[in-house]
Design a protein around this nucleic acid. Sequence first.
DNA 1: AATTTCATAAACATTA
DNA 2: ATAATGTTTATGAAAT
Length: 667
Amino acid sequence: MMQESGIEAASNCSTNQNEASSGNHYPDSSTREGRSNGDTSSIEVTAAELVHLQQQQAFQVARQLLLQQQASGLKSPKGNDKQPTLQVPVSVAMMTPQVITPQQMQHILQQQVLTPQQLQALLQQQQAIMLQQQQLQEFYKKQQEQLHLQLLQQQHAGKPTKEQQQPLAAHHLALQQQLIQVQQLQQQHIMTMQRCGLLTVQSGQPALSLQTLAQGMTPTELQQLWKEVTGAHTMEESVTKNGSLDLSTSSICSPAPPPKTSLPVALMNGQSTGHTPKRECLSHEEHGCNHPLYGHGVCKWPGCEAVCEDFGQFLKHLNNEHALDDRSTAQCRVQMQVVQQLELQLAKDKERLQAMMTHLHVKSTEPKYTPQPLNLVSNVTLSKTASEASPQSLPHTPTTPTAPITPVTQGPSVITPTSMHSMGPIRRRYPDKYNVPISSDIAQNQEFYKNADVRPPFTYASLIRQAILESPEKQLTLNEIYNWFTRMFAYFRRNAATWKNAVRHNLSLHKCFVRVENVKGAVWTVDEIEFQKRRPQKISGNPSIIKNIQTSLAYGSPLNAALQASMAENNIPLYTTASMGHPTVASMVGAIHEELNGAVEHSNSNESDSSPGRSPLQTMYPIHVKEEPVDPEEMEGPLSLVTTANHSPELDNDREFEEDPRNEDME
DNA sequence: AATTTCATAAACATTA
DNA sequence: ATAATGTTTATGAAAT
């Protein structure tokens, strides 16, 4: 009873309700000063609001232009830009990084295969990177000044000997390289974002300098530029923080409006209110909300999760624990790699989705299921969530050709409750095959699953296992399993009776779940061997799957290679990465290896074409060792990977024991 | 075409 | 007595 109501409450406050009519007010009556007029639907923007919006945007454009001009010293006489009047065309407004216009938003939402959550995640990551990069650059600047100072001193003291100069110079060089690297990465990132349509124009100076850098600017010049803009920069920074990037993210995610931009926020907000993943922001201080490294009262620095009661405390923590040192720098770099990697993956997946869609559309004979969205989504999901987003844009062949493809009003995201549930129970299969790395998928897309009402592409058994294995003791009570489900997946915050029954059913049915009597009741554990037995159909040489894996490898290898390279280059010991315990990197590596282990092994014989991905991985792997003490049960054979040659006897036994029969079966 | 896996529903038993 | 927890059976969809 309590349980139920708790769940309902959770679902009320955190899952989407956008099917609710526009007259329906928020269930929670938390403060919403920023919203000018309740929950006017995002689409119905009054003319006055639009005008106001444009004014604001124009103002910001003008302001930024001014800043830029000040910074670069180029005073182009564009008088009219400064006048924040209605005349500022929307296109100009759209050019500004400050605000994403509703139109633009719609466009993005229609075109993108991203859910707002994903968008938000991406943007947040990017923002974090920007911040980190700024730090880096400041660091770099300091270093250079220091160097300069020292050189001066040396000159005063007499001629610097080469011996004296060299270490410094080397250091300097290293720093430069580092910066360049960071910036190149950043730029790639930006470009990807732009390609994806996530950003139209980059915000402010950093991007500017980056692009020039890419066009062949030397670090020195760059630094000069930085110095030049630094004056404006401090100001700019505040703008950036409150306005540009952050706005774009928070407009998607959070209704907390920075004063100047309240209107746009309110506008944007309507579109995704139901989904707002960052609800908790409301209960936090306004500023805390804005910091991408702070949320849930917890420091979001990769691998940190220190609890900070308020924003001030968080700032303190940030300065103390994540000061500019080797570790932070490395983490920053890694994070960058991660983002980049994700982008890459996203791009590929989008491409794939596109192809799939075109393919399906051409056929356009999809007689059976009208519930298409779910269907496709679940299948598409098979590689990272990136693609699951826009059901609107899916083929949508069937019965109702005239039916408007799910309107934007619906809240752009995923599967709307209406689309999913109005048609009664749909039986769908959500196989977690070839998608072996459940742990990594969940880890990677945690935020997404938490907020998007999308069914995770895993079977109940897999999910239950995951829940249990994630627990410290590797055992959970039924209720705890329930809680894990609701905590981790928005999807399971509804229809409790159904899925709970399924959970119980699965627990009982599968031998792999073992009930253990405990002092205070019973807990469930996982018999991993049984589980593996039960999960045979991994691969058996199915070419498409193998291909899939190879793609994954292709995804994985550059990351690792790059990581490794960058670390080697900067003399950062590998364990730095491990110790920071970044879930994503770890999980990616893990994921790849899960696949490797589970699948490629078998098809190895004829796999000559795809080896490039492997070696870096394998060399890379040792990083993972210290990462998770809990591992042995967790993954398919992580230990075997530690020693590249993969033979920890027991595991090997297990493996043969479990898999061989299957292989024969298959053949 | 047959078999297997999975999701869902539901009846029923047991336990707290 | 009731809800939570387990067990079992049935059914159908989808994948193999």
